[in-house]
Design a protein around this nucleic acid. Structure first.
Lengths: 238, 238
DNA sequence: CAGCTTACAGTCATTGTGACCTGAACGCGA
DNA sequence: TCGCGTTCAGGTCACAATGACTGTAAGCTG
């Protein structure tokens, strides 16, 4: 790292997070992706919706700042948090130069109901987004692309579900994210071959049909691939 | 983007780049990956080797700053430049808080000879690295992982070669990066099926054996995949 | 021209995957 | 109680992709 040449004007560092969850109405219809946004109260961009975030304190790490600001503004505790990209075009904010380190997060569907529900914090459906502030729409679309891409080679769908889940629920996550129908038999075969699922032995009772098996994600087998470690928190209170 | 809560201490923003090229001794032995590093002249970390980079000016974009600092310190003009990751642990620099937006770049092998050759700018072999300053070793290893991973699903090997190349040269790039032997016939079949190569019709004369065909990369077919656009410059003078 | 090396083309077996089928297990209504 | 419908769960079949291998063509050297 070089030495500061001058003590003059400098870009400000912000941290923002794109949060994904599934719509809780998992009853009959297919679930859809939802994203919480916060309404901006101050200029620039007052009134518009924006990604939750905040300025980076001098003594806080990037991952910690992303998790904290996300929790402070939405009350959510993510199960998956990963750095997405750093956006720093000189004109992305009208007044001053702002560089945003953007993260993306996945939260359990049952966590959504415990989230802050405010007139300034609102959940939007993936294809029913409002007008966003700054370049946040571009950021959100990039995060969506990354989620869809990573779902196909990594095993992150469990981060959108609860502790245990049925094969049909897991398939529903893939179908909702990828926006396509998947063959139940082939999906089962692929997931069982991946070795990341553990059959709990339990079965979900009360269904009008044959009770499905309940699975758990094998945390031991998930530690390969990306060398940058991702935060996979157990839920903590805000 | 929120409003500054205080005008107090703030992290400084730096931009660094991990540059990859192949060793020019493409005569007989297999080429190897080489990385240019610069010697730090000032504290902290004076005397150690570090990634080329510099502070981010207020009015310059991230991509532009990465390309400029890379060119100023090494004299290189990269053919491929992509953002890698942003490193911002609070203790990664001893004195002040520094957040580094790190890029990775590929340069043509013939570009290496035009590069600055200084006692403060030196090329190191991939497995003969010196002691690096700060967390730059961790950064470099992550960039290496990304290069190896991306080479297998994207077509970026041409960025390490010249304008035209033989199939054996292209295979040599893959073998050098992936550190493994590849079957010539299967490699040819895979590359021809990818549709990214164009036969120039010319053949490389002067070889002691059957003259190989010269290929060119099909720039039109390379525009798919990652929605974040990468800089693919034509070479420009420093 | 013999002999060598590399370029390039083709074959065969294995594997992964999409499409489809069949039986099993449950609740529900007649 | 007994079909009956629905979903779970395990299987087969066909095709594409790929690794291992063999064969032929085209240049140079002695």
């Amino acid at each position: 790292m070089p030495r500061p040449d001058e003590a003059g004007a400098q870009a400000r560092l912000a941290v923002s997070t794109v949060i994904f969850a599934l719509s809780p109405d998992a009853g009959a219809a297919a679930p859809s992706l939802r994203i919480p946004l916060v309404r901006r109260l101050r200029e620039p961009g007052a009134g518009r919706w924006a990604l939750p975030g905040g300025w980076l304190p001098v003594d806080e790490g990037l991952d910690e700042a992303a998790g904290r600001t996300l929790n402070e503004t939405t009350g959510l505790a993510p199960t998956y948090l990963e750095q997405l990209y750093t956006f720093g075009a000189p004109d992305r904010s009208p007044d001053e130069r702002v560089v945003s380190v953007v993260y993306w997060a996945l939260v359990h569907s049952d966590e959504v109901e415990r989230a802050v529900s405010d007139e300034n914090v609102c959940w939007f459906d993936e294809d029913d987004l409002p007008e966003l502030a700054f370049d946040h729409l571009e950021i959100l679309e990039y995060a969506l692309w990354r989620l869809r891409t990573k779902l196909q080679y990594s095993r992150i769908a469990h981060a959108l579900l609860g502790e245990v889940f049925t094969m049909a629920e897991l398939r529903g996550v893939h179908e909702a994210v990828l926006r396509t129908r998947l063959d139940p038999a082939n999906f089962r075969r692929t997931m069982e071959a991946s070795g990341t699922l553990v059959d709990t032995g339990q079965r979900l009772a009360g269904t009008p049909h044959r009770p499905p098996a309940l699975y758990r994600f094998d945390t031991a087998s998930a530690r390969r691939g990306d060398p940058i470690h991702h935060i996979t928190r157990t839920r903590n209170a805000s």
